[in-house]
């Protein structure tokens, strides 16, 4: 009897998969605990997305104002040095300048967000190694970081869209007065907002998951030894 018990305790079991709720709890706490650090990561995302969103919004509003052919607005546009004739050389030059600005802001997003997420994960390689030593499954670690990245990514992107949009609206209202509101292309702006959210979430997820995946797949000693 005693011998039987001894053999049973010597068998190797299989680690249980923890429920998703536990992963959500751990990752949420993790974001909350390092609030200061999370805030810096999130503000990186906010800035990048706000820049993109403000460029998009502003371009859309100016386009729509030009099309409106409202005499008072035309005057204000000309005062700002914007050519109202869509066929003029100055106009096409401006269009290519705008395209360049949008490409630039997309690049800022790409670099800014992936950098913020990469840093916030790679500085925790030692922690990932330790968690593996404590018996965490690779999948569980990846799940935690997936959730953390999506918390921060979604929050950052949504705040970024709101900040970028509001600031642009504020500045344009100062420039063109309140009659601007009848010409705001709401549908287009909402579409841009959704696109920005998709881009921001996608970038923050990939930026966060790739290093976490790499660390989770390593042997624990290698993950702990890695100095970043």
């Amino acid at each position: 009897m005693a011998q039987q018990k001894a053999t049973a305790s010597r068998e190797i079991g299989s680690q249980v998969n923890l429920p998703l709720s536990k992963a959500i709890e751990i990752s949420f706490n993790s974001v909350k605990i390092r609030f200061g650090r999370s805030l810096i990561t999130v503000s990186g995302i906010v800035l990048a997305i706000a820049f993109l969103m403000s460029i998009w919004t502003n371009t859309a509003i100016i386009d729509s104002l030009k099309r409106s052919n409202d005499p008072t607005i035309n005057l204000k546009l000309q005062q700002k040095g914007i050519d109202i004739d869509p066929d003029s050389a100055a106009s096409s030059q401006e269009r290519s300048k705008n395209t360049w600005l949008i490409v630039l802001s997309l690049l800022v997003c790409l670099v800014g967000i992936t950098n913020a997420m990469l840093m916030s994960v790679t500085e925790r390689f030692r922690e990932i190694g330790t968690m593996k030593c404590m018996g965490a499954l690779d999948g569980f670690i990846i799940k935690i970081f997936l959730l953390e990245s999506s918390f921060m990514g979604t929050a950052g992107t949504i705040i970024g869209v709101i900040v970028g949009f509001s600031l642009t609206m504020l500045l344009d209202t100062i420039s063109y007065g309140s009659q601007l509101y009848q010409y705001v292309p709401w549908v287009g702006i909402v579409q841009f907002g959704l696109m920005a959210i998709v881009i921001g979430s996608f970038l923050s997820l990939t930026g966060g998951i790739l290093p976490a995946y790499r660390a989770a797949k390593m042997e624990p000693v290698d993950a702990m030894r890695l100095e970043v």
Binding site: I12, G13, S14, Q15, K132, C133, M134, G135, A136, L137
Partner: peptide
């Protein structure tokens, strides 16, 4: 992987 994680979790303390 599952058995190794189990081993690290319950059999060995680091």
């Amino acid at each position: 992987a599952y058995e190794l994680a189990w081993l690290r979790c319950r059999k060995i303390g680091y």
